[in-house]
Design a protein around this nucleic acid. Structure first.
Lengths: 203, 203
DNA sequence: TCGGCTTGTTGGCGGGGTGTCAACAACTGG
DNA sequence: CCAGTTGTTGACACCCCGCCAACAAGCCGA
């Protein structure tokens, strides 16, 4: 499908490097978010920004480098307000972290979901590294929420597994509409509790 | 990296369509399993099969169509021996299905993992559809193993979530080496039990 | 005001991947 | 042995990517 974008083809404008880079990046975030990695050409990005294709390479190097920056932008949307941790018992804190996660995912960043399910290319080592770091951060947040401040490697691994459950469940909830938020909440809270109480002691 | 493949460039051989198609498909399965989708060109597949590139398109249409067939092959590797379901109580059956799953994943098919994590392209609607069906089948197997013969849509959705946990945990276990098989087994068995006992009744 | 300089920006070149199709040739039946 | 069937090939046209020399927009000193 050819999308006509109304671009004023007026005379060449010079922008500050930061501004131009930001502009191109925002276009790339939108396009890569809508379609996949393979479905978007650097020509599309350039056209969307009203700019020559060579300029995209000038600012971002290769197409994959541009995509890495796009993923970083999508993945750093949340991670801001994990500061508000209620100080109750374990079930209370588990409930709180699950509710917070569902809020974040459902409200202003299904782009985070789109990115973390590798919306375009997985198997690539660089992309995997960026995504792996995002999962690691999420696992850290979960561990801190349930009281483990300095966890060992095994605990980290188990927490990453749980994050995988959270991602797949949120994806299931948002993409298809069959589960209610309450059901999703109970699912994630209950499994988190049994993991903390029965599985984490193994580590 | 250029890989030299010893291909006898002998005189042109005619094969039966089924045989040729099978041969090309097997080469494609191997290559797409080793490297990703983008890293393998149809020229590579053709060269690996000792065949002209046009023939690949003749049998499989587009490159993505070929990849879809490859994914179907990788994902249908298991699904054969789910017949041996022990008839004990719930913990016994949960243990059995988890052990069977870990056997399948670890033994002859990390290619299954490579495929279900969409080793090259996710976000594509056709690829997603094939993967979604594989997850659905796995969810069916889990539900049958724990005694739910005719589950409703909500139960199906919850089972898909659990399969997501199984996939992410297996990936964690195989790719990094930090968890032991025993730990992975206990993790999946315990969470499956609490899901059956505490979460499934919500549906 | 005007030339020169810095540097953001462009357009085109070479290489590679993909889909298509007419021509070719390996087998088969008469 | 020959014609017909059909598996197979090679090349053409198109698109995308990384690269780079040339171009010009904006700034500054004379």
């Amino acid at each position: 499908m050819v999308v006509e974008v109304s671009v004023e083809a007026g005379p060449r404008r010079r922008l500050e490097p930061d501004a131009r880079r930001e502009q191109i990046l925002s276009v790339a975030v939108r396009l890569f978010g809508e379609r996949g990695y393979a479905e978007v050409s650097t020509t599309d990005v350039a056209r969307g920004a009203g700019v020559a294709r060579g300029l995209v390479n000038h600012y971002f190097g290769t197409k994959k480098d541009l995509y890495l920056d796009v993923i970083r932008v999508m993945l750093t949307v949340p991670g801001v307000a994990i500061t508000s941790l209620p100080q109750g018992d374990l079930p209370t804190r588990a409930d709180a972290i699950v509710g917070w996660y569902l809020d974040v995912v459902s409200r202003h960043s299904r782009s985070w979901l789109a990115a973390i399910t590798a919306g375009g290319m997985a198997g690539d080592s660089d992309v995997d590294r960026v995504i792996a770091k995002a999962i690691d951060d999420a696992a850290d947040a979960v561990l801190r929420a349930v009281g483990h401040e300095s966890p060992g490697p095994a605990l980290h691994a188990m927490a990453r597994s749980y994050v995988g459950l959270a991602v797949s469940t949120a994806s299931e909830w948002l993409r298809r509409g069959v589960l209610t938020r309450a059901q999703v909440h109970r699912l994630l809270a209950a499994t988190l509790l049994t993991m903390v109480e029965q599985v984490f002691p193994d580590a």
